[in-house]
């Protein structure tokens, strides 16, 4: 299973890691290993010649606040996010997604950066981060200095397992603006059982509540397309409209039309569309009543 690995690197600083990436190019990155190892074992992922373990890089760890932005280190584990006071206070919707993430054992090892770079359409943290307007920070070291570029998370995903990260870049952090007063957000994950499941669909919803309607609406869906995605037509149907039964019905109908799921082992496309419709309705009713 570990065939093809010729070199193992465990950099102790971001600088070391980026230098090696720039020099070597083809590198398999290891953080929590909860996706990489099963994929390699099943033959779905092939190791490159260098295996780089990122877990010793202090700059990629922890959660901090910089002005009005929360900086979530790429190596933050799901368990750390679940118990982090800043996340709990400002990003309860992300906390909730972490609470529905696999099992305790997997959460203890799995990292936020890994969940994002794995780019599964069903990745549990992706949908809440999309509705929170999160950005990814990509670091590289083309010369003597470290460069950092930022990109909205909504532009980061290209397809299943594919992102816009360049081979010489590392995802160093996720940057999330602290939500404004009146901000509401909801997350729903549908699995066949309450724990230890891959989502059949997931829904994220956010906005700022004003006089019975939502502004700056964000709606995102997981497991209904090749990537987790923002649902722009659904957002538009909801933006600024009185949250009454009529609006909720129209928004849910729009969402059902907007998603393009597939049939697979876990559910049919038809059922996924039904779930999107019914659960978005339930979430909006919950927002309207609270």
């Amino acid at each position: 299973m570990n065939q093809g690995i010729e070199r193992y690197l465990a950099p102790q600083s971001l600088d070391q890691a980026l230098f090696a990436l720039q020099e070597l190019g083809e590198v398999t990155l290891l953080a929590g290993g909860t996706d990489l190892m099963p994929q390699a074992k099943a033959g779905r992922a092939k190791f490159k010649r260098t295996l780089m373990n990122l877990r010793g890089i202090p700059e990629l760890k922890g959660v901090s606040r910089e002005g009005n932005t929360l900086r979530l280190g790429a190596l933050a584990t799901i368990t750390e996010l679940l118990h982090d006071p800043l996340v709990g206070e400002h990003l309860p919707v992300l906390r909730e997604a972490c609470d529905h993430f696999a099992s305790d054992q997997i959460r203890n090892a799995a990292t936020l950066g890994g969940n994002i770079n794995n780019a599964s359409p069903a990745g549990d943290t992706l949908v809440p981060l999309l509705v929170l307007d999160a950005e990814v920070e990509l670091a590289s070291r083309p010369d003597e200095a470290i460069y950092r570029r930022r990109m909205p998370l909504s532009e980061f995903f290209v397809g299943p397992g594919k992102t816009r990260r360049a081979p010489a870049e590392l995802l160093s952090a996720v940057l999330v603006p602290c939500p404004a007063p009146g901000h509401v957000a909801r997350f729903y994950k549908f699995g066949a059982r309450p724990a230890l499941d891959i989502s059949t669909i997931s829904i994220g919803l956010a906005g700022v509540r004003k006089n019975g309607h939502l502004e700056n609406v964000r709606v995102a869906f997981g497991a209904v397309a090749a990537t987790p995605l923002r649902a722009l037509a659904t957002e538009e149907a909801l933006e600024g409209r009185q949250l009454d039964a009529q609006t909720i019905a129209r928004v849910a109908a729009t969402a059902r039309q907007e998603v393009q799921p597939i049939d697979d082992l876990r559910a049919s496309a038809w059922y996924r569309q039904e779930l999107v419709h019914n659960m978005l309705t339930r979430m909006l009713e919950h927002v309207a009543q609270n």
């Binding site: 309450p194 724990a195 499941d197 082992l265 876990r266």
Partner: peptide, 27 residues
Amino acid sequence: LTENLMVEDGRIRNPNFRDYKLVTAPE
């Protein structure tokens, strides 16, 4: 409620605990 060994055209589609769903503690 949950367990289902999916057999299609003679082939088992879910030979793993991710897709063959045993009951877990909360249920």
